[in-house]
Structure formats: C-alpha cells, structure tokens
C-alpha cells in the first residue's frame, strides 16, 4: 500500500514531506485557491474513504460520508486554523460525518445507535470457519467488524484500529468517556466470540472442561 497520511495521527517520518505538502495545499486553498483545494481532495480522498468505509461498513454509505465530509471541509476551510495537520482535521470531519450518517440510518430503522447495541444478534453461521492463518483471521475479523452494531463498530475501529484516545472518541461521537468504554468492551467481547467461538476454543485450551461450566 502506498504511504497515505496516517489518519488521526501525526504523519510518520516517511510521510512528513507529503504531509507538509498537503498542509501547504490547505493553506493556499484557504486563501481561495480552487486548484489547491482540488489537489487537496485528490491527495486525501483515499485515506478519508478508507476510514469512512471502516466506520460505516459499506461502500454506498462510505461514498456519501466522503462527499459530505469534503463539502463540510470546503465550507469550513476558512475556520481551519492549521493547529493540527489538515489530514487530521479531515479525518475528524469524516468521523463526525460517519457518526451522524449512522445515527440517521438507525433512526430510519426506528432504533437509535444505543438501542441497536442492546439488540446484538449472534450470527456465527455467517462467518467462515475458524482458520489458522493470520490473513484468514484478519479477513474474518473484517467481516465480523462489518456485522457489529454501528455504535460498537465506530468505537472499536477508532480505538483499536486507529489508536484514537478515549477522550477524543468521546468528543467526536458526542458521548461520555465511560459510555465510549462500555461500547468498546462490548465490541471486544462480541468480536472475540465471533473470531474464536467459545466451545471449540475452550475445548482446545483446557483438559476438557466445557467453558460454561468452568469456574
């Protein structure tokens, strides 16, 4: 994969020049340079799309999120002061836009993000059989992330995939830090159950005591 700017983080050493160039484009765009804004879009769309896709879990919604993100960025560019890298700013807008899109999606399905979290359905049959290779495990995990309730997926992707601190997650999603943690722990439990189905895993790890009876 090419060295795209790392979302939600300062640029790594190999990406510093690229990041500085992107920040320079943002500065020109802020002065009203339309070409610079277009180049900024070209340079950053892939990383915004990938983040959006991982948050919302499908191409259709991810495309909408990216379009709305750049519209908001275009309108808000004059207010961007350059304290953070412009990619960090764009990714924050992406997270916020994705959260709002998921909220709308769950409202139209007559449930809120939180209700959705309570109604977790276990569908291990929809995942492939457990496999030994790391690549297979990663694919199974990506599938399992896609099946998580939206409110849980948002938090676990931001925390465990993108390393965003709890404080920032809570702020971007407009929830308390403790609520964010509760969602994170639920998400991890569900993913663990889906990636390593309990009975089989325990049977391997113990001397034959079924997991549900142990302790």
């Amino acid at each position: 994969m090419t060295a795209l700017p790392a979302p939600l983080r300062q640029h790594g050493p190999g990406e510093r020049l690229r990041g500085a160039e992107i920040d320079a484009l943002a500065a020109r765009a802020r002065e009203g340079d339309r070409d610079a804004f277009e180049q900024l879009v070209v340079a950053t769309t892939a990383s915004c799309y990938q983040l959006a896709y991982r948050l919302v879990g499908n191409e259709h919604d991810a495309r909408d999120v990216v379009q709305e993100t750049y519209l908001r960025a275009y309108r808000g560019l004059k207010r961007f002061r350059g304290e953070a890298a412009v990619t960090t700013w764009l990714h924050r807008i992406t997270v916020n836009t994705a959260a709002r899109a998921l909220e709308r999606r769950s409202r139209s399905a007559t449930a809120t993000l939180d209700d959705d979290i309570e109604l977790v359905e276990m569908r291990p049959d929809r995942l492939p059989e457990p496999a030994a290779s790391a690549a297979d495990d990663r694919s199974r995990l990506v599938a399992a992330l896609g099946e998580l309730p939206d409110g849980l997926r948002l938090v676990v992707v931001l925390r465990d995939v993108y390393d965003l601190p709890h404080r920032d997650i809570a702020r971007e999603l407009g929830i308390s830090q403790s609520a964010a943690k509760v969602r994170l722990h639920r998400a991890r439990r569900l993913l663990r159950e889906r990636i390593f189905p309990a009975r089989r895993a325990h049977a391997q790890a113990t001397t034959g005591i079924p997991a549900d009876e142990a302790g």
């Binding site: 994969m1 769309t45 892939a46 799309y49 990938q50 896709y53 991982r54 191409e59 495309r63 790391a134 495990d137 990663r138 694919s139 995990l141 990506v142 992330l145 676990v156 992707v157 465990d160 995939v161 993108y162 991890r188 993913l191 663990r192 990636i195 390593f196 895993a201």
Partner: peptide, 20 residues
C-alpha cells in the same frame, strides 16, 4: 485469545480497502 484479537485489530489497517 484477547491479545490475539488486539493484534488482529491493529492489523486491520493493512487490509486493503479498494477505493471506488
């Protein structure tokens, strides 16, 4: 198992997402 899950989650960013 949880530690393995955490390692896998960190690797999700290396799983290519095709940009349409």
């Amino acid at each position: 198992r949880y530690r393995r899950l955490m390692r896998l989650l960190h690797q999700v960013r290396t799983v290519e997402v095709a940009v349409p």
